[in-house]
Amino acid sequence: MKQKTGSNMQAARDARARERADTDYSLYEVINKTPGSSVYELAKELGWSSGKVYGSVRRLEKDNWVRIEKAERDGRSVLKITSVKWHEFLTSEEIEEFKSMEF
Rank of each mutant, 00 (worst) to 15 (best):
E69H: 09
S56A: 15
E41K: 08
K52R: 14
S7D: 12
K70N: 09
V66T: 02
M9I: 13
E94G: 08
D74P: 01
R58C: 13
E29V: 14
S49H: 07
M1V: 06
E94C: 04
D22N: 11
S92C: 01
R67P: 00
A15E: 13
L46D: 03
F103E: 15
S56R: 01
S7T: 13
A43D: 09
E102K: 15
E93Y: 04
V84R: 02
S100E: 13
R13A: 15
R67N: 11
H87W: 12
Q10A: 13
I31H: 01
L42A: 07
T34H: 07
E45K: 03
V66Q: 01
S77M: 14
S56N: 08
K33F: 06
V66R: 02
R67S: 03
A43P: 00
F98E: 10
V84D: 00
A43S: 10
S100R: 15
S37A: 06
S26L: 15
T82I: 09
L27C: 03
D14V: 04
K85R: 08
V78P: 00
A11H: 10
V30M: 03
E94N: 05
Y40D: 10
E41W: 02
Y40S: 11
I81H: 01
E102Y: 15
T91M: 04
A71H: 03
D74L: 12
G75Q: 08
D22M: 05
Y40L: 13
L79N: 11
L42H: 01
N8T: 13
L90S: 02
E93K: 04
S7W: 11
A43F: 05
V30R: 05
S37L: 00
